[in-house]
Nucleic acid binder design. Structure first.
Length: 413
RNA sequence: GCGGCCAUCGUAUAAUGGUUAGUAUUGGGGACUGUGGAUCCCUAGAUUUGGGUUCAAUUCCCAGUGGCCGCC
């Protein structure tokens, strides 16, 4: 496959209907695993992969300005169809010049289709049929109907560059019959998504990702991967993967990727943690979106690098609210070069959190996102230098060995 | 000075002549993966002091101390 580098999607299959405005170039393919460097070209600029895509659910990275996100070096962010549909409504955003102009973020953007929110609301505010989803707004209890066509139309109005087909996210623990039925429905929804998308994307201003589902069953993941491939979407997402159990999740993603075309950009929805990224990049995942760094920042979880004590066991993070940091005069992470770490102490940020000062959310979010950006930069660098295994060793394997050593040590005591 | 009312975890409040004094918040920890500044879990923490009645008092009685209100 390494001889297929530099190949772009638009040249790979004449039947593909991807807009000319979009292409994916693989600039470097690792030889000892499936990790690759790539560039997703969009009308709003390029996304260098593997990339972490911060989540801006309601057209904002909570507590940050777009300028701050840009300064950290992020190429792209992801917003959400369901939330923006309910508030402020797609008409408002369309009239505001579409989402990038509306929120003053002028680089590439993704929008999620709303499928995950259906999953989140399932059973409470939402009922699912084969043709549509009926749900009640969590904001004002008003009733709404969402269909694949509607999701495409809303995402069209929002105007993000890269959009997702409408799918059904499923509990990873669902049994086989449930998963099979859900998968059939998702595939139907995705077919309808593609038909509608091709109809309304007349100016090729957007590109579509299909989504592989299939729950925890490898044969269904395979079936889904093969089906989604036939949809000829620009990119492909893998959904309903959760952080744990890790081994099973990795197995499912591996299995899905095995049956997907290598030259398309692959997005792993909703993942991940630090170790997740080290698991999935070498399998060939190009982009990740995850709320962890931003959400955890707001409740005081601060990511820390290996040289500052971060490891698999402590999930690469400290909790700044812990009393032991009350008078700690050192930065959140001494090895970090972000704005927060070069200007403030743990003691100060501990104080900001305890007193619920707004600046706390900003500083913690800047640090956590900077942490993930630098992590992805180092991963890209390592792929370029054929040193990914060494980097992974530093972050993951080494600490796993240390955990084993500690276990042995403790058992001897 | 006189009279009345009050006193329970750090704070705000329940309850009771009897076995483990409840709740909220705060404190100390933990969880969070297509968002959740939310929420959830664990944990710590109190009957103002001295007498009396009683088998048994945080509860009833008396006094002290402290607080609030009213009157002079």
């Amino acid at each position: 496959m390494s001889n297929q580098t530099k190949q772009s999607v638009s040249n790979s299959n004449k039947k593909d209907r991807e807009p000319n405005n979009f292409s994916f170039t693989i600039t470097k393919q690792s030889t000892d695993n499936q990790a690759r460097l790539g560039i997703i070209h969009t009308p709003h600029g390029d996304i260098h992969t593997p990339a972490f895509i911060p989540v801006a659910t309601k057209a904002t990275i909570k507590s940050l300005t777009p300028q701050q996100i840009n300064d950290m070096g992020f190429d792209s962010i992801l917003s959400n169809t369901y939330h923006l549909y309910l508030q402020p409504g797609p008409d408002i955003i369309e009239k505001g010049g579409k989402i990038q102009k509306f929120m003053a973020w002028h680089k590439p953007m993704f929008t999620d289709s709303g499928g995950f929110q259906v999953f989140s609301l399932s059973g409470k505010l939402c009922t699912i049929s084969d043709t549509h989803v009926t749900f009640r707004s969590h904001i004002d209890q008003s009733t709404h109907v969402l269909t694949p066509e509607k999701s495409m139309q809303i995402q069209r109005q929002l105007g993000a560059d890269l959009i997702f087909a409408f799918d059904q996210c499923l509990d990873i623990n669902a049994d086989y019959p449930t998963t099979q039925a859900s998968l059939k429905r998702t595939h139907n929804w995705e077919t309808r998504s593609v038909l509608e998308f091709n109809k309304i994307n007349i100016d090729n201003s957007q590109a579509l990702y299909g989504i592989v589902q299939g729950g925890r069953f490898t044969e269904l993941r395979e079936e889904s991967a093969k089906f989604v491939t036939t949809l000829n979407t620009f990119g492909i997402g893998i959904g309903s993967i959760f952080g744990d159990p890790k081994e099973e999740s990795v197995k499912l993603v591996t299995h899905a990727l095995k049956h997907l075309p290598e030259h398309k950009p692959k997005h792993l929805l909703g993942i991940g943690s630090v170790d997740d990224i080290f698991y999935y990049v070498p399998l060939g995942i190009d982009t990740f979106d995850c709320v962890l760094p931003t959400r955890l920042a707001r409740i005081g979880h601060i990511f820390t690098r290996p040289e500052s004590g971060g490891n698999v066991e402590n999930k690469f993070r400290i909790k700044i609210t812990n009393a032991k940091y009350k008078e700690d005069q050192t930065p959140l992470d001494p090895a970090c070069t972000c704005y927060t770490c070069t200007h403030f102490t743990k003691s100060y940020i501990h104080h900001l959190e305890k007193s619920k000062e707004l600046l706390f959310y900003t500083l913690a979010t800047i640090h956590n996102l900077s942490f993930f950006k630098r992590l992805m930069d180092e991963i890209q660098q390592s792929i370029q230098n054929d040193s990914f295994k060494i980097l992974r060793q530093k972050w993951i394997d080494q600490t796993e060995e240390k955990i084993e050593e500690n276990k042995e040590h403790n058992s001897k005591i």
